[in-house]
Computed example of a mutant assay.
Amino acid sequence: MTADWTDRILDLDVGAVAHGGHCVARSEGRVVFVRHALPGERVRAVVSEDGGGAFCRADAVAVLDASPDRVPSSCVWARAGGCGGCDLQHADPAAQRALKGAVLAEQLQRLAGVVRPTVVEELPGGPLGWRHRVRLAVDAAGRAGLRAHRSHDVLPIADCPLAPAGTLPSVLAHSFEPGGEVEIASDADGLLHVDAPGPQAGGFPEDGPVVQRAVGREWRLSPGVFWQVHPALPDTLAAVVAQWADAPAGGVAWDLYGGVGLFAAVLAEQVGPDGGVTVVESSRQAVADGRAALADLPQIGWRVGRVERLVETLDGQPDVVVADPPRKGLGKALVEALCDRGPQRVVHVACDPAALARDVSLFEARGYALTELRAFDAFPMTHHFECVALFVRV
Rank of each mutant, 00 (worst) to 15 (best):
T2V: 15
T2F: 12
A3Q: 14
T6P: 00
D7C: 07
D13W: 09
H19L: 11
H19I: 11
G20Y: 12
E28F: 07
R30Q: 10
F33A: 09
V34C: 09
G40W: 10
E41C: 12
V43R: 03
S48G: 13
G53F: 07
R57S: 12
A62Y: 02
D65N: 04
S67V: 07
P72G: 06
V76K: 13
A78S: 14
R79K: 15
R79T: 14
G82N: 07
C83A: 12
G85C: 09
G85D: 14
G85H: 09
C86A: 09
A91R: 05
P93Q: 11
Q96Y: 06
R97W: 04
R97K: 14
G101M: 05
R110V: 03
A112S: 04
V114D: 01
R116A: 13
E122N: 10
G125T: 00
G126Q: 10
P127K: 07
R133C: 06
V134Y: 05
L136S: 01
A144C: 08
L146M: 13
R147Y: 10
R147M: 13
P156R: 14
A158G: 15
A165S: 13
A165W: 00
P169V: 13
V171P: 02
V171K: 08
S175V: 11
F176M: 06
F176K: 07
G179N: 11
G180W: 05
D187E: 07
A188N: 00
Q200G: 00
F204Y: 14
E206H: 12
G208T: 07
P209V: 04
P209G: 11
V210K: 05
R213C: 02
R213D: 01
R213F: 03
A214N: 00
S222W: 04
P223T: 10
G224H: 02
F226G: 00
W227H: 01
Q228K: 06
P231A: 08
L233E: 00
P234S: 04
T236P: 07
A238P: 00
W244F: 03
A249G: 15
G250A: 07
D255E: 11
G258A: 02
L262W: 05
F263H: 10
A265H: 11
V266M: 07
V266T: 12
Q270W: 08
V271W: 08
V271C: 14
D274G: 14
G275R: 06
V280M: 02
S282Y: 08
S282N: 09
S283I: 08
R284F: 09
Q285P: 04
Q285E: 14
A286W: 04
A286C: 09
A288C: 08
D289W: 01
R291E: 15
R291C: 12
A293G: 01
A293W: 01
A295P: 01
A295K: 10
G301F: 11
V311D: 00
D319S: 11
V320T: 01
D324H: 05
P325A: 03
K332R: 15
A333T: 14
D340M: 11
D340C: 00
R345E: 10
A350R: 02
P353F: 01
P353G: 10
L356M: 13
R358K: 05
L362C: 01
A369H: 07
E372S: 05
R374Q: 11
F379V: 03
P380H: 01
T382M: 01
H384W: 07
V388N: 03
V392G: 04
R393V: 04
V394M: 12
